[in-house]
Amino acid sequence: MSQPTAKPFLPHVLAFATGLVFGVGLLVAGMADPHKVLAFLNLAGPWDPSLAFVMGGAIGVAVFAFAYARKRATALLGDPIRLPTSRDITPRLILGSVAFGVGWGLAGFCPAPALVALGNGQPKAVVFVVAMLVGMAAFEWLESLSTARGTLNTSVNAVSPR
């Protein structure tokens, strides 16, 4: 049915289209505007519930796609379907999410809307995205440190980079 090797550029075209639709969705929903996001997080102020409608609309559609995807092994373009397998609820998950929530509440930006605002030519969005990349790089560095330490402690000679 699908030919995975015949048209290797198709997944990239689809990824671009997906990003485009997602970005337009954020703009239409008003979510590329940090002020509107903060108006949702401001429960004690004049509250704007719009973000809940965005989440509801998105989940209401995606729930069917994921239910179907779970029954399949390969995607329609031939690549394997990669769904997250981790089910562990760890301190990392909760503390990481809390940290993200603090940053989200301070600037009103999360990663996707920041990239859309960057495309919109907003200098503060550029600063946010660069800082976010620095934060992500810091995480990679901290992880490599703890991996290296773990390797030394267990005195395993072969380091397996991820």
């Binding site: 689809l14 997906t18 969705g25 979510m31 989440m55 989940i59 690549d79």
Partner: peptide
Amino acid sequence: GGILLGIATSLLILFNGR
């Protein structure tokens, strides 16, 4: 807008498996 996010999400998991 949310429905558009849902459509984009659905396309990526169904076509690319991501």
